[in-house]
Design a protein around this nucleic acid. Structure first.
Length: 557
RNA sequence: GCCCUCUUAGCUCAGUUGGAUAGAGCAACAGACUUCUAAUCUGUAGGUCGCGCGUUCGAUUCGCGCAGAGGGCGCCA
């Protein structure tokens, strides 16, 4: 539609001998009273032509030839906008796509053929997922879904930092918990992992190994072999916990990458040699540094400590090179604001190695806080407040938790209102949307009873174009027609929060229509079938939208 | 001290490349169910878009400065 109007405007400009036309916009005005589409072209020409925008607009409008296009009226606003009113027939034709495409309605192919890796959560295997991970988990999953909706082949990837100091600390913590089963006074390591889950793991360990690894005394240092056993036992158990949490949260990863494998496969060594060969790393104070400041970072960074151990950065950089070798067109990393300072460092590293600008994209989301009874809740194990993601899901349900985490723009802080989340009522936006789906599903028996079911399974008869003329109906149709472009906009911007807003608007328009007009009207078969057709379009779009968010569309509530 | 993000109605937040009279939900107030699910609908009220300057036909949107909130500035991960 936009294209048709743009061509017409371009022709009109040529006819008026206006050359080097500026980049004007054709868009949907906020206020429906201003028509369906509008252009600002006259404003942009005002300067060069030294005429008032309104005058120019009048001339252009006069030269427009739109007879063949589905444009009902062209109006010139007093200030200079040119407004176009589209025939309702146009939207009705587009509406047919909802039924024709069904579950595929809203999808497009603008990223067809692209391979994209989305890395998110990547929580270290030192404990179960907390509510803090929830936002990132949903954000990553929904961004992935959106990219898939645009035709991309997406790899959801989780990176486990299962090497390094913290894993040793995890092993020590397990060992201490284990020792305490026999000697409650056994000392716990400073900065050890205090979570209760380690007590359970220690019990399981004891059940398997008995007292075999019981330390003789608190002072006894375990050998490397013993440490490895504790470390790997804990990591394995915790990985299973995390898997279960993610499954509960309905998130499926395609690939789990292990930091430890980067070492065992020599990737870290290779990278180190490469950096040295290219002269972008150097030795200083007994450590190896990356000359990151030459590539946009604020300072140089240590990649191998003077102790000889690599820092976290080095294997992570190696990991990204492996990603690139796996021939992804784009890599997207999702991180919390607490890691945002790390992004420039990684970008500098990629730049230093000559990888294409823009290949790696970061989505940084702000932190989440929880409120209850109007007060901020501090999550703590000791206070008995739920801290794990699994507990939150049990408390409010997976659909609600996912919806709340994704409904805000990543840039802004998210306030998770637990009271609202728990409410199973109209105030809760999740149910408001889901109710639309359930309500429409419940129409089927009524329609069958009235003898309006056409017998074809799962499908209502073709819509009679132009039959539905109530204002609520034309608005609803116009909104349904916008869904594909909304998905595209949200996907390209990596901003899934647009979807909940769209769905709430859809729900509002549907409920209003439903309240004011009967769908199934006794004795009026044609009208009823047309309305059932529209209702079913709403149902499909609602279901498709919720699916993008990983939220169920219930048939009954 | 330096860097990043944010600041829009009482609260929580949208606002799609700068557009017309700035929107929604919740809370508040007033109404609507003999009818397909009231988990619904209708209406009222609510604003210095943090503050100031600049860019221009036009700024919530772009630039600079200031204030406030959160986060980051390790040979931690």
């Amino acid at each position: 539609m936009e294209k048709i109007i743009r061509q017409a405007v371009d022709r009109a400009l040529a006819e008026l001998h206006i050359e080097d036309a500026p980049e004007y916009v054709i868009e949907k005005p906020r206020d429906p009273a201003h028509g369906d589409l509008a252009t600002n072209v006259a404003f942009l020409l005002a300067r060069t032509l030294k005429k008032k925008p309104a005058l120019i607009a009048g001339e252009i409008a006069g030269a427009l030839k739109l007879e063949s296009a589905p444009v009902e009226r062209v109006e010139v606003a007093p200030n200079g906008f040119i407004n176009f009113r589209i025939s309702p027939r146009w939207n009705i034709e587009l509406l047919a796509r909802v039924q024709k495409e069904g579950e595929r309605y809203g999808l497009s192919d603008c990223l067809a053929g692209k391979k994209i890796v989305v890395e998110f959560v990547s929580s270290n295997p030192t404990g179960p997922l907390t509510v803090g991970h929830g936002r990132q988990a949903v954000l990553g999953d929904c961004i992935s879904s959106l990219l898939e909706a645009l035709g991309a082949k997406v790899c959801r990837e989780y990176y486990y930092n299962d090497a390094g100091n913290q894993m040793n600390m995890l092993g020590r913590s397990l060992r201490a918990r284990y020792a305490r089963l026999f000697d409650p006074a056994f000392s716990f390591p400073e900065n050890g992992y205090q979570g209760e889950y380690l007590i359970e793991i220690a019990q399981a360990f004891a059940a398997e190994h008995g007292e075999r690894f019981r330390p003789g005394s608190a002072a006894e240092e375990p050998g490397p072999e013993t440490m490895k056993i504790f470390r790997e036992y804990a990591a394995e158990k915790i990985r299973r916990m995390i898997d279960a949490d993610l499954k509960l949260f309905k998130i499926n990863f395609d690939v789990w990458s292990m930091e430890s494998r980067l070492y065992s496969e020599g990737k870290v060594e290779e990278l180190l040699a490469l950096l040295e060969k290219r002269g972008i790393s150097y030795r200083k104070d007994g450590a190896v540094w990356l000359a990151a400041s030459r590539f946009g970072d604020s300072e140089d960074r240590v990649i191998v400590k003077s102790s000889g151990e690599p820092t976290y950065f080095l294997p992570d950089l190696a990991y990204h090179l492996v990603k690139f070798e796996r021939s992804f067109d784009v890599a997207i990393n999702i991180h919390g604001a607490d890691h945002h300072g790390y992004a420039p460092r990684m970008q500098a590293g990629m730049r230093a190695l000559g990888y294409p600008e823009g290949w790696l994209r970061y989505v940084i989301h702000q932190m989440v806080s929880f409120i209850e009874n109007g007060e901020q809740v501090r999550m703590s194990t000791r206070a008995g407040r739920f801290v794990t993601l699994a507990d939150l899901c049990r408390e409010v349900g997976v659909d609600v938790a996912r919806y709340f985490f994704v409904m805000r723009k990543a840039d802004s802080h998210l306030v998770f209102d637990l009271d609202l989340a728990r409410k199973q009522s109209n105030e809760n936006p999740v149910y408001y949307c889901q109710y639309v789906h359930a309500r429409i599903c419940s129409l089927t028996p009524t329609a069958v009873e009235a003898g309006f079911w056409d017998g074809e399974r799962g499908r209502w008869k073709e819509y009679t174009p132009g039959a539905l003329t109530q204002p609520e109906e034309t608005e609803l149709i116009a909104h349904l027609v916008e869904f594909p472009s909304l998905v595209r906009t949200a996907g390209e911007a990596l901003e899934p929060h647009h979807i909940p807003y769209y769905l709430e608007e859809l729900a509002k328009k549907f409920h209003s229509w439903y309240q004011h007009h009967r769908i199934v009207v006794a004795g009026e078969k044609e009208l009823s079938l047309d309305r059932l057709y529209l209702a079913d379009c709403v149902r499909r779009v609602m279901a498709n939208g919720l699916r993008l968010l990983g939220i169920t569309a219930p048939e009954k509530m």
